[in-house]
């Protein structure tokens, strides 16, 4: 009885819609073709429930044209999709994080006066970069000139002052920003030993 009720409802709605659409049809030689296509849909609407009721165990190709997903199923599918998406992002996120940290450290070490860099990258749920935290250790035997060039004093040993650190920090920020196209605000640079 439920099958019959569903079938009647389905056919009724489709026929009403088809009748209304037929009113909208343009007058011309194309009209019979459009009516034929609408007729095919009405045939599917009638035939599909009948075939399903008569031959429950058989799969017909016509079923695919009347495949319906209920709102509950749709929600379930979306939830599964989201979970899968999060799993994929989590598994690839770790690898991406390590690679980015390694690359940034290597690039930052090319800045004159820098001896060692430790990078900590934080990623968001989508796998995008949120922030880069760089901990920099400077070479003690090197001193930056005011013009930005580097002079190496073998016998020196003066520790870089605040201005030098500022210059190095700006250079690191600039190099990383230009290389990756990151926003300057996302990069924080700290020096070992204050």
């Amino acid at each position: 009885m439920a099958v019959l009720a569903g079938m009647v409802k389905n056919v009724l709605v489709i026929i009403i819609l088809a009748s209304f659409l037929e009113v909208l049809l343009p007058e011309g030689r194309v009209k019979p073709f459009v009516r034929f296509a609408i007729g095919l849909f009405i045939i599917i609407a009638v035939l599909n429930p009948v075939l399903n009721a008569l031959f429950e165990e058989r799969e017909f190709e016509i079923n695919l044209w009347d495949y319906q997903v209920s709102s509950e199923q749709e929600r379930e599918i979306l939830e599964k999709g989201n979970r899968l998406n999060q799993q994929i992002a989590a598994s690839t996120g770790t690898g991406i994080k390590e690679k980015i940290e390694g690359q940034v450290s290597a690039v930052a070490m090319l800045v004159p006066g820098v001896k060692e860099v430790k990078t900590n990258a934080s990623l968001n749920d989508q796998g995008g970069l949120n922030q880069l935290n760089l901990t920099v250790r400077l070479e003690e035997s090197k001193q930056l000139q005011k013009g930005g060039e580097v002079n190496v004093f073998l016998g020196g040993g003066d520790a870089p002052d605040t201005e030098d650190k500022k210059q190095i920090e700006e250079k690191i920020r600039g190099v990383i920003s230009n290389l990756y196209g990151f926003d300057n605000l996302k990069i924080s640079v700290q020096f070992e030993g204050g």
Partner: peptide, 22 residues
């Protein structure tokens, strides 16, 4: 009415083609 939207979408496409052609 929980009618398959595919029906409607295809009929609309056909209707659009018919109108433009006319």
């Amino acid at each position: 009415a929980e009618v398959n939207y595919f029906f409607f979408a295809t009929i609309l496409k056909i209707l659009g083609v018919a109108y433009l052609a006319e």
